[in-house]
């Protein structure tokens, strides 16, 4: 198993449900923990990553904040449609530091991965009911 860094040349974000132009979705896959994408209100929020070619993915590391529940789906089509569920996970709430989760996918081949945040955390700063979150996919582990 080779660990490959998640650089943006072989993958790109093709859909995002919301964004702030100062924190665009490309930040999710730029491999830099200092940059981030932030959703701008309400749930669910999602983004879809397209790979240059069908790719096997054993696991994905997700650094995030205020994510409560994440669903991951995949497809093997050139189009952004007909996704099937891969896994879902509840994230532990953190205060003042990132949530870092390695999520096992065991996907043999996928052209798109879809990440859906169905709900945000209670601890999302003073006064907000989970209107924003930050997420970054740092690297995948290729089989």
């Amino acid at each position: 198993m080779i660990e490959s860094s998640f650089n943006s040349s072989d993958k790109k974000v093709v859909l995002v449900s919301s964004s702030d132009e100062n924190h665009p979705p490309e930040n999710i896959i730029d491999g830099n923990t200092q940059t981030f994408w932030m959703s701008t209100g309400m749930f669910p929020q999602e983004f879809i990553i397209r790979f240059a070619e069908a790719t096997g993915i054993a696991a994905v590391t997700v650094d995030s904040y205020n994510v409560k529940h994440l669903k991951i789906e995949k497809n093997n089509s050139p189009n952004v449609s007909h996704f099937e569920s891969v896994t879902e996970k509840d994230f532990e709430r953190t205060e003042g530091h990132l949530q870092s989760n390695v999520i096992s996918l065991n996907v043999n081949s996928a052209t798109h991965l879809r990440f859906i945040v169905t709900s945000g955390d209670k601890g999302c700063g003073p006064g907000c009911c989970g209107q924003s979150l930050w997420m970054k996919v740092l690297r995948d582990l290729q089989t």
């Binding site: 923990t33 953190t94 003042g96 530091h97 924003s132 930050w134």
Partner: peptide, 14 residues
């Protein structure tokens, strides 16, 4: 939102 964004910018790594 601004406040929340500032909080996020000041986060430390997990």
């Amino acid at each position: 939102y601004q406040e929340h964004r500032e909080n996020i910018q000041n986060l430390s790594p997990g």
